[in-house]
């Protein structure tokens, strides 16, 4: 199994490197495109068309963008990365993690493919979050080459992330569809506000996980698209401004979710990180946290994903 995993890793590595080399080679700065591509007719004609593109109706999104980017995005981001972990820290200190019997019976919860997809997704998404934050707070880390590299890594990670994100949408959606019991779960807040180990209503994935799933995939798609627009300036300036506003706003939301997921995955449930690596959850955990999940010993073993 390990071999398969490493093969896949290498393959991804080659793929990324190859893709990077291919694109890099194409972007040879010495071979600038023919000048004729730059303009169609005369300067007057070009810039007449351009003025609408270039200045847009600044009052519309330009001013909004400037105000948001200048004042609010970084404040909101700062708030997110301090308050959210802060709340969880509080939770950890007060309520603490949930422990389940690791030595008891294990249930295969995450087949290999799931784990591989999740691994790549997690890695690239983490890089996205990290580099994104570096860009937001660039001026405090000196700008220049470091942040420029962060920007490039942000793009690379985005490209890598698309693959696992798409695959997630293929392998998980059935289990991620909302059910009636999700409302009950939400009311209970998943049982995380109590130290007791009482079964909570959740299928294979609970409401929180479902919300996170859809945010990351669909929200990620929006992020990818708006990010692409910003990267390539591939639209009129008003659309680019709007894309930047959406990207930053949604980004902050995803950041909050991400931090939540991190806390849940790493701290709030003891052993959940190991579960993600091995694929097995303690039966006790499944019975409590995913009480509606119908699993069968024999059949589960055959599941591929």
């Amino acid at each position: 199994m390990q071999r398969v995993f490493y093969c896949l890793l290498l393959l991804t590595g080659f793929f990324t490197a190859g893709f990077a080399a291919f694109v890099y080679a194409r972007e040879d700065p010495a071979a600038a495109g023919p000048i004729a591509d730059l303009l169609t007719v005369s300067s007057a004609d070009y810039y007449q068309a351009l003025i609408a593109e270039v200045a847009g109706n600044w009052q519309n999104y330009g001013q909004l963008f400037t105000t948001l980017q200048g004042q609010w995005f970084w404040k909101a981001s700062l708030l997110t990365i301090t308050v959210v972990p802060g709340l969880f820290l509080l939770h950890y200190l007060v309520i603490g993690a949930k422990h389940f019997d690791q030595g008891g019976e294990q249930v295969l919860f995450f087949p290999l493919l799931t784990r591989v997809v999740h691994f790549f997704g997690a890695l690239s998404f983490s890089l996205l979050v990290l580099t994104g934050l570096m860009i937001v707070f660039g001026k405090y880390i000196g700008g220049g080459t470091l942040i420029r590299s962060a920007r490039y890594v942000h793009l690379l990670s985005a490209m890598v992330f698309v693959v696992p994100a798409c695959m997630m949408l293929v392998i998980w959606p059935k289990d991620m569809l909302p059910r009636r019991h999700d409302i009950a779960w939400l009311v209970l807040l998943g049982g995380y506000l109590s130290r007791r180990k009482k079964p909570v209503p959740a299928g294979k994935f609970n409401a929180g996980q479902k919300m996170y799933f859809w945010s990351v995939t669909l929200g990620g798609a929006v992020m990818a698209f708006t990010g692409y627009v910003i990267w390539g300036m591939g639209a009129d300036v008003e659309s680019v401004r709007l894309a930047a506003i959406m990207h930053n706003t949604l980004g902050m939301g995803l950041l909050a979710f991400y931090l939540t997921h991190l806390y849940m995955a790493v701290f709030a449930i003891a052993g959940s990180l190991q579960s993600m690596k091995s694929g097995y959850k303690p039966k006790e955990e499944v019975d409590i946290l995913h009480s509606r999940y119908k699993y069968q010993q024999g059949q589960e073993a055959k599941r591929r994903f």
């Binding site: 295969l108 087949p111 190991q274 690596k277 073993a301």
Partner: peptide, 27 residues
């Protein structure tokens, strides 16, 4: 270093090395 557990086909896990990220270490 962590090993990914290979399913034994019956959903149980062979007793063996299991490394979790020690929450204390994480903190």
């Amino acid at each position: 270093r962590s090993k990914i557990m290979i399913s034994a086909g019956d959903g149980t896990v062979a007793a063996g090395q299991r490394v979790t990220l020690n929450p204390k270490v994480a903190r």
